[in-house]
């Protein structure tokens, strides 16, 4: 009998499981912001080289996602949101994920160097290292500021895109970094406010768990205030223009208003309407970032200042 059932729980993955290791949804943000960074840079890039560059930046991001899933498999198994990921679900072994992460990182960095330039490739390698080692292995389980510093990893793609075209760094690419960097904390803390139980169970020191929810609300509001000047400053550089500036001012006012509403609410009001405001601000924060980069793209096509 055993011979018939021996295969029933065999951990053999299908192709989609390996794709899931690369965190396709995070990758979409990486693709979009890297693409915008590359296109709005003042140096023209051949369309096919631009396509390849964005592809390999995305592959590098995916590879760091696989490394993250390898290291975080124990946390993922505890949290409801991540229980279905390939490793905790038993479809992919940890060793496979590690191998895929390392090999794809190498391929992505080498190919980006060959397609674009070696500065961009080194930048990509640093980003993978930052996300997989500094964020995943070190900060995530150690400090409630994990989101803030880990957010830097997600802020690098537009800078890498810009570096693919120009071979360097400039104030515009630094401000694009700042835009995502200061956007990340309010975005994730709004999520953490209505997903508390999960992080709590996994023992990840989210700000909501370590310093309480009132402190988290204050932090969200503070970051929306800090974010606004950087977003508007970007509109005053060579990549900015009236359209971007207009979009940026409106979005920042709305985001600050959302942060203010979150700040003014207590837990009682929040539980009463099942975190409606927090959920709305979280959803809005997604559009906030998308519309900023879309505005940069539109502004580039119709010409800036």
């Amino acid at each position: 009998m055993t011979d018939i059932h021996a295969y029933d729980n065999a951990p053999e993955a299908e192709f989609g499981d390996y794709v899931a290791l690369l965190k396709p949804r995070v990758m979409s943000l990486v693709v979009f912001t890297a693409f915008v960074g590359l296109i709005i840079a003042p140096v023209d890039v051949h369309p096919f080289i631009a396509f390849c560059s964005v592809l390999f930046i995305a592959l590098g991001g995916g590879a760091s996602g696989a490394l993250n899933m390898w290291y975080d498999a124990d946390i993922d198994a505890v949290m409801r949101r991540t229980q279905g990921r390939p490793i905790p679900a038993g479809r992919v072994t940890g060793g496979e994920a590690l191998a895929i992460g390392l090999v794809l990182s190498g391929i992505a960095v080498m190919m980006l160097g060959l397609a674009a330039n070696w500065f961009a490739a080194a930048f990509l390698a640093f980003t993978i290292f930052f996300y997989a080692v500094i964020y995943t292995m070190w900060l995530k389980r150690w400090t409630p500021q994990n989101i803030v510093i880990g957010g830097a990893a997600g802020s690098f793609p537009p800078m890498i895109g810009w570096a693919c075209a120009t071979g360097g760094i400039s104030i515009e690419s630094l401000l694009m970094f700042a835009l995502i960097f200061f956007w990340t904390p309010p975005h994730f803390w709004a999520l953490a406010l209505f997903m508390k139980e999960d992080y709590h169970k996994a023992g990840v020191p989210m700000l909501t768990v370590t310093h309480g929810r009132a402190a988290t609300r204050r932090h969200i509001f503070a970051y929306t205030l800090v974010l606004a000047p950087f977003s508007i400053w970007l509109g005053l550089t060579s990549v900015g223009g009236p359209i971007y500036l207009g979009v940026s001012i409106v979005l920042n006012l709305l985001f600050i208003l959302g942060g203010w509403r979150i700040l003014r609410r207590g837990e009682d009001a929040a539980t009463a309407d099942q975190y409606a405001v927090e959920k709305r601000v979280f959803k809005f924060s997604l559009s906030y970032l998308f519309l900023h980069f879309l505005a940069l793209l539109v502004q580039h096509w119709i010409g800036g200042w």
Binding site: Y7, A10, E12, A13, E14, F15, G16, V19
Partner: peptide, 15 residues
């Protein structure tokens, strides 16, 4: 065909 073979095929074709 076991369901396992389908998963294997998806891996081979995908690669």
């Amino acid at each position: 065909e076991h369901e396992l073979h389908g998963r294997r095929r998806s891996r081979n074709v995908g690669l």
